[in-house]
Each structure stands twice: as structure tokens, then as C-alpha cells.
Design a protein around this nucleic acid. Sequence first.
DNA 1: CTGTTAGCGCTTTCAC
DNA 2: GTGAAAGCGCTAACAG
Lengths: 351, 351
Amino acid sequence: MPPTLTDVARRAGTTGATVSRVVNASGYVSARLRATVEAAVRELGYVPNANASVLKSRRSTTIGVVVGDLLSPYAIELADTVRAMAAQRGYTTLIGSASEDVASELSVIEVFHRQRAAGLVVATLPTEESDREIERLTAHRTPVVLLGRSLEGAAIDSVSADFRRGGYLATRHLIELGHRRIAFVGASIEEADRITRLRGYLDAVAEANLPARADLVVGGGESTPGPRYSTQATGYTGAQQLLRLASRPTAIFARNDQTAFGVIQALRDQGCRVPEDVSVVGFDDIALARQAVPALTTVSQPTTEQGRLAAEFLLGRIERPDEPVEPRRIVLECRLMVRGSTARLRRRARR
Amino acid sequence: MPPTLTDVARRAGTTGATVSRVVNASGYVSARLRATVEAAVRELGYVPNANASVLKSRRSTTIGVVVGDLLSPYAIELADTVRAMAAQRGYTTLIGSASEDVASELSVIEVFHRQRAAGLVVATLPTEESDREIERLTAHRTPVVLLGRSLEGAAIDSVSADFRRGGYLATRHLIELGHRRIAFVGASIEEADRITRLRGYLDAVAEANLPARADLVVGGGESTPGPRYSTQATGYTGAQQLLRLASRPTAIFARNDQTAFGVIQALRDQGCRVPEDVSVVGFDDIALARQAVPALTTVSQPTTEQGRLAAEFLLGRIERPDEPVEPRRIVLECRLMVRGSTARLRRRARR
DNA sequence: CTGTTAGCGCTTTCAC
DNA sequence: GTGAAAGCGCTAACAG
């Protein structure tokens, strides 16, 4: 039903080859003919069929970004940075959201693969399944850049920040303030291999010779083993769970800022003051962290820089596929931002 | 380079047609042959080329969602609802972000058009250019559903909430609290035709016989005529601008909750208390509104319901293209949520 | 149940 | 400068 190249050609009294040249601004076409063709395009409302053109030319101008948690400002900022950079170079960025389950993540990646997208940025939590899916992509020589994760063994560019050290810094900060019962909210202890900021927490706890109590690491729900991503709701239920403990924590490190805000809300609802009764640290340093009252102590990572590097690497691979560049593994630094949600432990602070 | 249907067929000792039947689970294939083909698919790492299949079959399973401001939790919630619903019916949702400028919005829509996506949900601010772009889509019989906007004259489904009435309710609430100098932050007065919540504000102001002062409607920057979308930053600079006025407003209605938070931050930085010195109302009722301190008075709109309806309409049109259904124009209600950021005007409130 | 065949709409040599 | 022709990888009759 939509008009084709041939329809346009017929109307302009020429052939498809010429119309293609005009539409793609490739090859020489006389000014006269060009004008005729352009008029025909307009009159017919011709919109090229990308399926045909990608099929034939094997060149796509679409870049896919796969994110896990769309509600995380951090993920969005990354995606938007990639979008802006890609747009400058003539690429359109489409975002595929993986939501909670791994299956949907795989299907999003596969859709981009089927479409033969020019390249992909993958910014989800690592899983074996998605690692395999990504390897399938690279086996077909589709450029992929990993964001916030990396794939051992494979020659794939990755950009991330040192989350483990970030988690360590956050926890050490609490320890230095005198806290001994420090909880982690947003993942269960079994996930420590994938959630590196939890590893950093464990590092710091071990270093200070504090007992690593499993009941102080909560995923947010008693039923669930721990969510793939952690949100405000995770923080809220996680904190509630901690408050039911016989010996409550005096400080809580949340997996991300959203989670931290959920934690704070739960604490307040139970009459706990932050930071007087309980200190709270977040992670990511989203815009809101600075603005909240009290401002959130958190770990900041250079989000825009990560997006920028990812886009740069990806576009480079797309535009110069044969250039044999060593796979890059960039790890940027995290910084602790001390604000108002943490305070020195007050002994016998009950009322 | 990636293996094709024919490669798989060769390896399995059969033909492309059979492989296609196996891969798409269409038509009958003996269990034996099916197994052979599936093995070949796996061994070769075959991933079907969607370009070829869409080109041939004229059926796509991709749905596009076009949003303006990715950083708005409201837009994300909409997109995610559509995604979830579409996934249930076997469609994959890709999100195209339009960022600030109209040009990028047009290009995103066109990319989906070129890809011959199965259908589109467009949730950006209305502009003439995008209206035309959308009409091109529907001219080619691609189903489109508009979210939060509508297109007069065209037979296109649309779902939105009554923003105008929402803006009216918010403003009337402030008036009832005794405020007379009420500002709007997030758009300039010239945009009142597109930003219906600003129209609602003007309705209420007129109804109360308050002077409609143009200097009380600020876009966020003195230089810019008003941003396409309004964010925290818009609110911050907008409030600063208002605070420089000789007669400051005693209440501020922000175009959305993000903006309201920016406004509140600016007020605090200037030593103004909320709500004692200035009342603030937002719009959208994002999750954070409830949680902030003070909790934000705002206008709530049924976001999930809008996404759900949009997806339902779109999927219906996609799956039953010939069913002659009247275009639907759904307008849902907004509700005023009175919380802690608004208070009765205190006369002579200076210190 | 499986193979043969004819394109889908476009790009891209290669001639003229 | 422009056209003719071949074919990208797949689907969908139609035979058999």
C-alpha cells in the first residue's frame, strides 16, 4: 500500500536507480531530474522501506540501547547521552527496556539482532544468558559495548565505574562514623558476585573485623530472593524488615539512591530520624540526592562520561569495522559524597 | 556473514521453506526434520533477518513508543505500561526519545515509519510538524495512538487526561487558600494553546477576577521563550526569576512535579519556607511527590490507565486492521491531591 | 509433510 | 548522468 521506489520513479518518469540516488544523496543526478524526483516523493508521501534497504545494503543506521530499569534516573541519563552522541553522527538510538525478567532482556537483544542494528549498548545486569546472547551478536560482527558490566574472555569494549570500591568507600564512611551494625538493602547475599557494590560493602565489613551478619543484607522482600533491580519499594520493604530485627542496624547502605529514599521513608514512618537515629548512604548521586532533606550521602559515578565513552567506542567500531583495535575495558572512579543523611553514631540514643 | 535461512537448510539437508516453517512455527514439519533443523539453527547460530521477513510478509512485531522527556517519571511509567501489555501479546516495544528539539522527534517517528513498525504510540507535545509526520504514518495505514494529546480532524485514537481541568483545580485550590499572587512555572504565556494545564491556570485566575499578570508566568529562563519540556532545572531558574520580582508571588503552580521540586529547592536556597512563605503545587503525582518533605500537593492523573488503554487500542488496530472502529478520544479525570506543600496565605508573613 | 517458485523494495555494479 | 539487471534473505502460494 505505501508507495515504493518504483512508484516514485514512474511518477517522475525515471527509474528506481535514480530515485535511490536522489533519496540517499548518492551518485550524480542532474538538478532538473532531482527536482522532479523530489516533487514526486513529496506528492506520493514516499517513505523509504528500511527493511529493503538494510537487507540489500547491509548497513543500518539504528543503534540499540538495552537498559534494565527504565525508572532509574541513572540508566536514563546513560541512554540519553548515547542518544545525543549518536545523533550527531547520523544514527538514531532506540531504547529497549528489559524490565524485571531475564527473558525479556534476551528478547530485546534478539530483536535488535534480527533487525541487524548497527550496534548495541547493553547496560543491564550481567547474567549468563545475556552473556551468551551478546556473544551471538559479536559472532556476527555486530559491535557491542557493555555499560556497567563486562564480559570476561570476550573481546568486547566495556565502560563502567568501580562499583566495588564505591561500595567499600560508602561502608567505610559509616564505619568511621562509629557504626558497627551496618545493613545493606537492595540485594541478597547470594548476589554478591553480580552486585559489586555489595562486594565492596563486604570488603569494608571484613576489613573492620565486623561480623558479616547475613540478616543485615536484605533484598527487599522476605519472599523474593532479591530483585534484579532495586527501587524505592525495595528500600521501603527492606528497611521494614531490618526494623523488625532484635538488634537493629544503626546505619544502612542502600544499593542505589532510589532504594535509599525508600529506606528513609520507611524509617520515618517508624519514627526513626535520619541521620540522628539511623544513617543512610545511597549510590549513584542522582539529581535528587543533593536536593532531598536531608541531602543524601551517596557515591557518585561519572554517568555522562560513561555514556560518552560508550557511544564513542561503539561509533568507532561501527564506522571502522576492520580497524583492529584492542578491546577496551574502562573503569572510572567513584567518589563518596558526604551530605546530611549520615552522622556519627550516638551511643544510647534511645529517646 | 551471518548465516541465512539457506545456510541452515543446506546444513539440515532440506530447503528454506521448511526452515522457515520450523523457525516460525508455521505449517507442519515432521518431528524428525524439525529436530534436524533446530540442531542446524543452533550449530550455526542462526538469527533470522527481520528485514527480509518484514519486507516479504509485511508484518512486523515491533511497536514504537515516542516520548519527549525521558527523564520524566510520568513518561517512563507510560512507556513501561505499554511495553508490558504489548509483550503479553508477542510484540516488542522500542522507545524512541525525542529529546528537546522537534527535529529529533520527527526523525524518531520517521525511523519507526521506515522500519514499518507494527504501530506507534506517540506521547510528545503536539506540534504542527509532528502532526504532519503522524498523518503520513496513518496515510500508510500504520496504527497510531496519541497519548496526552490529540489530533483534530484526523481519525486517530487518543488517550489523555483532562489537564486543563487539572490545572484549574490546582490553581483554584491556591485561590481558596487565600492566595492572590499565584505564579505558573514551566512554560511561557504564549504556549498556553499547547500546554493545557497552563490554560487551566488561566481559567481559574480569570474566574477569580485576579489580574492575569504575564510576569507571573515564567518558562524557566529569561532568554528562552520556554522549554519544550519542563524539568527540575526549569523550576529552579523559574523560581529565581519570580523571587526577583518587586511583588513576589505567594503561591506557585509548577507544570509538573519535577519542576515543582526545582521550585522548592530555589525557594529554600533563598530562605523561603514551603508552605509557610510560599505554597507550591505540582502536577502528575509521581511516586516521589508523596514522599518528599513536605509531601507535594499535586494533581494526579491515572498514568497506568492511560498506558493500558493506549496499548489496548493500538494492539486492537494492529491485529484487526480492517475492523472499522470509530476513532476513540478518551479523556480521563485528574484529581487534586492536597498534601503539605500548600497552606493558607498568611498576611504580613514577613518574619 | 516438503520442495519449487516468485517476488517483497531496495542498492549497486556495469553499460550506455 | 542515467538505466538495466541481479539479488539481499525471507515468505507464501502452489504443487506434489
